[in-house]
């Protein structure tokens, strides 16, 4: 419940009048009451749930919320997690860093198909466990081809790597010209200043047009109310990141906004035992990722589609 920053976009007059309109509906009043309830502590859970549902319904788009509305939204997210999972989480709104655009490079010759990145990602990002949403998919491909159609998504041998195979991890490429953003009818997904394509899970209407538009199969849908065993919940969360999601909305890799915007590595990079993953600031000429891009022969998956991915592959 910390509104720890100024809103990025000053509300324009149009939004101001809209807010007036909503206030006239009495929504502002309810939001204030809900907020006060938290401030005074000793919340009645039943009452909270009802007021929260009401405020959730009228919650504005992330980019249009005032600092106060955002603080209330974050508090509601924390209360929701407590009600659903019995776990105290902390949900922040972590702003992008100035002068940073994130990029990723992956050394295919080092990837050995362990899928540690997949597991690290799941531990970090609170996807539903029953729904088995995973942001990273590692493809096992026969050496000598790059045809994805022949790849095995569910390889499960005793030991990896298997002879004659190579491994290609695929996740959201954080395209610079993202077709998913273009397709969304309600602007529930957009590219942040640090180049990360994010989703306002509370604004998504669940039409799944973005999933049809994505050439990397990076977007996943919550077909059911996602369940996470309470012991496995990562309580350190971000609004545009790993906070628990609801039924009926889309989600995807967000380069671990809750970590990377605080100078930490993304969870997949931290989990990778082979050092195949290079993550960093594309605007920093001294960064490792810049070194890779300038000195290695890199390629991007489906570059011909013109989406300008910020995820590169290279080999030793």
């Amino acid at each position: 419940m910390t509104g720890n920053r100024e809103p990025r976009d000053a509300p324009c007059p149009r939004d101001g009048s809209r807010r007036e309109f909503l206030k006239n509906l009495g929504v502002g009043g309810v939001a204030t009451i809900a907020g006060t309830g938290v401030a005074l502590a000793a919340p009645n859970l039943g009452g909270d749930a009802l007021a929260d549902a009401w405020s959730d319904f009228f919650q504005d788009h992330y980019q249009r919320m005032t600092p106060e509305e955002l603080a209330n939204a974050l508090a509601r997210i924390e209360r929701r997690a407590r009600r659903r999972f019995g776990v105290d989480i902390r949900c922040e709104d972590t702003p992008p860093l100035d002068g940073v655009v994130f990029g990723y490079a992956l050394n295919i010759s080092k990837c050995r198909g362990y899928r540690e990145c997949v597991e690290g990602c799941v531990r970090e990002n609170n996807p539903g466990r029953d729904s088995q949403v995973q942001y990273i998919r590692v493809l096992e491909i026969d050496r000598g081809t790059m045809n994805l159609e022949g790849s095995d998504h569910y390889y499960d041998p005793e030991t990896v790597p298997r002879p004659g195979k190579f491994y290609l991890p695929v996740q959201c490429m954080q395209c610079d010209d993202p077709p998913c953003v273009k397709s969304c009818p309600v602007e529930a997904t957009w590219k942040e200043p640090d180049g990360i394509v994010v989703i306002d899970y509370d604004w998504c209407i669940g039409c799944r047009y973005c999933m049809a538009a994505c050439p990397y199969w990076a977007r996943h849908f919550n077909w059911t109310d996602p369940w996470i065993p309470p012991a496995e919940i990562n309580p350190v969360t971000n609004y545009l990141g790993n906070r628990p999601r609801a039924k009926g909305v889309t989600e995807k890799c967000h380069f671990c906004t809750q970590r990377t915007r605080k100078g930490r590595q993304p969870a997949c990079q931290e989990a990778c035992p082979t050092g195949a993953r290079i993550f960093g600031n594309l605007l920093d000429p001294t960064s490792e990722i810049r070194y890779v891009l300038e000195n290695k022969t890199v390629f991007r998956l489906k570059e011909e589609l013109g989406t300008d991915p910020k995820f590169w592959y290279f080999t030793d």
Binding site: C184, V186, W203, I205, G206, R208, G248, V249
Partner: peptide
């Protein structure tokens, strides 16, 4: 997935991604 949020597609009250989105 969220029919309760269709109002997000209303101009003015919601955010309508027109003309970019074909939907």
């Amino acid at each position: 997935g969220r029919p309760d949020r269709v109002w997000h597609a209303l101009p003015y009250l919601g955010r309508f991604n027109w003309p970019a989105s074909l939907l």
